[in-house]
Design a binder for these strands. Structure first.
Lengths: 234, 234
DNA sequence: ACCTGAACACCGTTCAAGT
DNA sequence: ACCTGAACACCGTTCAAGT
């Protein structure tokens, strides 16, 4: 195994904040929300808990740093430059966030927490800025900037968060077959609801069965975008 | 203290699943997400952990039951009947959910989890049905029912979840003064961002300072509603 | 059928001690 | 300055034993 510096080292690759965060993300990705423990961390890094606490204040800070890292990467990878309308760029950014949350489902609750509990932290402004710039270029009048951007961001985080978790659901169901099975089970359950109490949900079970997560997500984005342009009467 | 049955009892009010869930909600409301522990539960109920496990399978089931109870109450209290357009009824239902999450901030992550991990459970269809019926009455064509309803529900849960947590933030800030302080701190932080990297967020800091959570939330609902009617070209 | 409470495995965090 | 690892307080859950 090659080391960073190029020379072969014994066992220790020298502990660092970055290395700890990297392993934290790996643990979260592979073992889900409960996979990040200090025991697992010390094992993978071949140290004691004290060493980790020297680089990181506590578990909360570690989660924040992991979240910030992944989100920054997702926003930086923006294929948004390629799209040539603000509308398409918003769709691209939204899809990038959707896919980041899909790949790292532990992000969803983490993002919600940081957005509400720590809006002064790095993550909130990063997402807000990214979407907001495109809203401005959409020609939305200034007094509606905040409302329009909040609306989009809330939808994105809400929808992505909701969808994300079935990706990693009970035991990470990653394959298409498993996803299909999951969707089928839900549609079946909805079809078996009491006709008196749940006429609408029953009527819509078939659409739930047929839907594709990504398409559905983008259709929602289009809905909010249509609303934004409709409200300004343009 | 009067007992349910009217007669004065010694110490034990007879343990029951309902009583356990009731106390669980109290603990979550007063002490936040981490407030629900089996130790606290056994203390308040004057029993041992084994007694609780007799009535409830585990902590997860307890959280599900608490969530279902509070949401069912919120949807039943619908002042939606009073409103006389489907549009106003959607606003009323949405606001009811917003306020339930505001009063019980622990609901937010719980709802997200149940929506994605357990869409066959009782909570998802209840919310979906409630909003969906009004979408149908809005005159939305059948093939758009699922998309329109999902869009609304995702926005509601996303926005309510995001807003909710500052209600109970670090140490439940319930008074208007504390809320105002929180909002002011965020606006200040946004104004101090790097002008090169965050021009939009800085420009919008003032709107963030002035905004009212409820108004903002409803403006977002209107955005999605406008989108729904715009998309069907009516 | 319902409840008791000691015990188990595991968690995040601390801290005196080493280098 | 950076790391070690035993120890602490706390957690969800189990289970033999009681009534």
């Amino acid at each position: 195994m090659a080391t960073r510096a190029g020379r072969t080292q014994r066992r220790t690759e020298a502990l660092s904040r970055e290395r700890i965060i990297e392993v934290a993300v790996e643990l979260l990705d592979s073992a889900g929300d409960g996979g990040l423990t200090f025991r697992a961390l010390t094992e993978r890094l071949a140290t004691g808990p004290g060493a980790i606490y020297w680089h990181v204040a506590n578990k909360g800070e570690l989660l924040e740093a992991a979240t910030d890292g992944v989100i920054t990467a997702a926003l930086a990878a923006e294929p948004a430059e390629q799209a040539d309308s603000p509308r398409d760029r918003i769709r691209a950014i939204a899809l990038g966030l959707f896919e980041a949350i899909d790949r790292h489902p532990w992000l969803a609750p983490q993002l919600a927490a940081q957005f509400s509990r720590k809006p002064w932290g790095p993550v909130t402004p990063r997402i807000f800025e990214s979407i907001g710039r495109q809203v401005r270029e959409l020609g939305v009048p200034k007094e509606n900037w905040f409302t329009a951007t909040s609306g989009l961001v809330h939808y994105i985080l809400g929808a992505a968060g909701q969808n994300a978790a079935n990706a990693a659901s009970v035991r990470l169901l990653r394959t298409e077959d498993e996803r299909a099975e999951f969707v089928e089970a839900v549609a079946k359950a909805w079809e078996e609801l009491d006709p008196e109490e749940y006429p609408f949900t029953r009527a819509v079970a078939d659409q739930a069965r047929e839907h594709d997560d990504r398409e559905q997500f983008l259709a929602g984005i289009d809905l909010v975008l249509a609303g934004i342009t409709a409200v300004q009467g343009q």
